[in-house]
Design a protein around this nucleic acid. Structure first.
Lengths: 137, 137
DNA sequence: ACAAATTATCACCTTATCATGATGAAGACA
DNA sequence: TGTCTTCATCATGATAAGGTGATAATTTGT
């Protein structure tokens, strides 16, 4: 559903949201704890800085923190820069123009499901994900 | 959501289901009409034969037809051989063991959405997709 | 038997994704 | 100032997905 890269990004942002309240979080630490290749993660978080999701500080005792408060940071913002997230609302059969009017075979049945997926990414915040982690079912 | 290959497979099966009632459908025809690279499609439909979704006949006036009646042929059967569709029910954060008990951050929120997706593939038949194509909204 | 048509298969190529290692740039602090 | 730490970046490689072209195998029909 998510590319490896997008999944890394989401896990990194969740980690920063959870551990970065009162300090900066280093790439080395995230890479070690989350078991993500270090330099690869470095590129990913840097991309998130460019996207305005994270803020970075260089030099000794540098690191990353959120650029947006967790309850205003939506999953889509974290995941979209890596691989098309628009794919969720995309036609299942890959047609460039697929709407209610010009419906492909799968369209009507699929669109309800696709809308659920898109909704999840669009409306779920990082804060909400942390909450549900804190209160396991 | 689907790999390119899986999407090709689904479109090919839908084509055979729609046009193969009283004849065999050739790869060349499908490739031309569906705009799918011919030899690549050839490999895909051959895989579907091995999976028991299609039947093939060689030689002059050969071609493909369904091995299963459309209302007993589920989308998952067509799509599963190409890329894991089990990914739909997979943990969003890629954890190997992610259940209600050991829930990752995204688990509880994600699983409802994922189940919808899995359900679509598991419970939708090729016949149903053809029906909804026949009666556009 | 032969030729034509069609699926089956082999060998490769191209591209994107994932990943690694080395180096540059910026800031903190003695 | 110098040095250490950390982010930023570059060049490269590994792997898998997607795609192409040629050839073999099988059946039909004459």
């Amino acid at each position: 559903m998510l590319s490896q890269t997008a999944e890394y990004a989401l896990r990194a942002v969740l980690y920063v949201a959870e551990h970065g309240d009162d300090r900066l979080v280093q790439v080395s630490e995230m890479a070690r704890v989350l078991r993500i290749p270090r330099n690869y993660l470095s590129k990913i978080v840097h991309a998130l800085v460019r996207e305005g999701v994270l803020l970075s500080t260089r030099g000794k005792s540098g690191g990353f923190r959120l650029a947006v408060v967790p309850d205003r940071l939506y999953v889509v913002q974290v995941v979209a820069p890596f691989g098309s997230l628009g794919e969720a609302r995309h036609c299942l059969l890959g047609r460039p123009h697929c709407s209610d009017r010009a419906a492909c075979a799968a369209h009507t049945r699929w669109k309800n499901v696709a809308e659920r997926v898109a909704e999840f990414f669009r409306e779920t915040t990082i804060a909400e994900l942390l909450e549900s982690a804190a209160t396991p079912a």
